[in-house]
């Protein structure tokens, strides 16, 4: 993931140690024991992080084997029965899984169409604001919702759009029948997309603003001298300048296709029911932790992880084909 917005990578500098200073030997010629004596404090420093990652990332990664087991917590991994691909077969026969899968893809599609362009447009708009005071103030305001918890965001939406909220009260006072916004399964996916926009679109402008700032101003000047109006300058200078970052963000989003606002949806799932609100992550949670179908839930989670990895690699490959750098350079 090389987001090369501002390349500050330090030049590789040869590090000196007391040993080095005495002998002037390059690193690889320093014997192992001497390196050990020299570097062991660094290893001690890395140790806590390595232990935490080992315990809560690597070992659980191996723990995914229970996707191929009839896992019974009482028996543990050692004594639970191996069932091969039975969990996956059961999963594919489960209408609930396909419902969650389809909901996830629908939400992702909505987010790509409605959410993804918003930060780009906001960044272009903010960039056109000349007064730096006004610009800074606006930025501080629109970044703020990013830092609020989903519980607060949902509470705010409830207060604005709920049955007794500001909008419906206004409609009722004006003799219009109230709208069911917060608990309507039909429009639930739109609702969570707009909540996502409200929370994170402002924050998302940061990276695009940086991309715009990195565009050479003389390009604009040249375009203007050649008679390009503001729209043409946007189309032929700004947009091409932003393209690598847009492609990068798109790849990251596509790679995350199967991850859609877990906490956000979990909070509101009860209001509309699982038919409209169940996504893969909530499916894993309810199936596994709540209902105790450990094997099947792990299978669903593992499937999601593998597909996500394939998606991100495929999207990246596609970007290379288009001549973009993507996440890593080819």
């Amino acid at each position: 993931m090389a987001i090369d917005v501002k390349s500050t990578a330090p030049a590789p500098v040869r590090r000196l140690s007391r040993k080095d200073l005495q002998s002037g030997e390059p690193d690889r010629k320093v014997p192992f024991l001497a390196r050990w004596r020299r570097d062991y404090p660094l290893l001690i420093m890395v140790a806590p992080a390595v232990i935490v990652l080992m315990l809560f990332t690597y070992i659980p990664l191996l723990g995914n084997v229970i996707a191929f087991m009839d896992y019974v917590p009482f028996l543990g991994i050692r004594d639970s029965e191996w069932v091969g691909f039975d969990n996956f077969t059961a999963l594919f026969a489960d209408a609930g899984f396909w419902n969650a899968f389809s909901n996830t893809l629908q939400v992702t599609a909505l987010q790509l169409i409605l959410f993804f362009p918003v930060p780009i447009m906001l960044a272009v708009f903010l960039n056109s604001v000349m007064r730096s005071g006004v610009k800074k103030f606006t930025q501080s305001v629109i970044y703020l919702p990013h830092f609020l918890s989903w519980v607060i965001i949902v509470a705010l939406f409830q207060q604005m759009f709920g049955g007794a909220g500001v909008v419906n009260r206004f409609l009722i006072n004006n003799g219009i029948s109230p709208l069911d916004i917060m608990s309507n399964p039909e429009t639930f996916k739109l609702l969570i997309t707009f909540q996502g926009i409200w929370k994170d679109a402002g924050w998302g402008t940061i990276i695009f603003l940086a991309a715009i700032a990195a565009i050479d101003a003389s390009q604009y000047e040249a375009a203007a001298i050649d008679g390009a109006g503001s729209f043409k300058r946007f189309w032929h200078v700004t947009l091409p300048g932003m393209r690598p970052i847009i492609v990068l963000m798109l790849i990251l989003r596509l790679g995350d296709s199967l991850t859609v606002g877990f906490e956000q949806i979990l909070l509101q799932r009860d209001a509309v029911g699982p038919g409209a609100a169940e996504v893969l992550d909530t499916f894993v949670y309810f199936n596994g932790v709540v209902d105790g179908n450990w094997g099947a839930a792990t299978a669903a989670g593992l499937l999601k992880g593998v597909v996500s990895l394939v998606l991100v690699l495929a999207a990246n490959k596609f970007a290379h084909k288009l001549g973009e750098d993507g996440i890593y350079k080819s």
Partner: peptide, 13 residues
């Protein structure tokens, strides 16, 4: 950064 272990295995751990 590339792989997450998933919710259930971490929970069981």
């Amino acid at each position: 950064l590339l792989f997450g272990p998933g919710m259930i295995p971490v929970y069981l751990m």
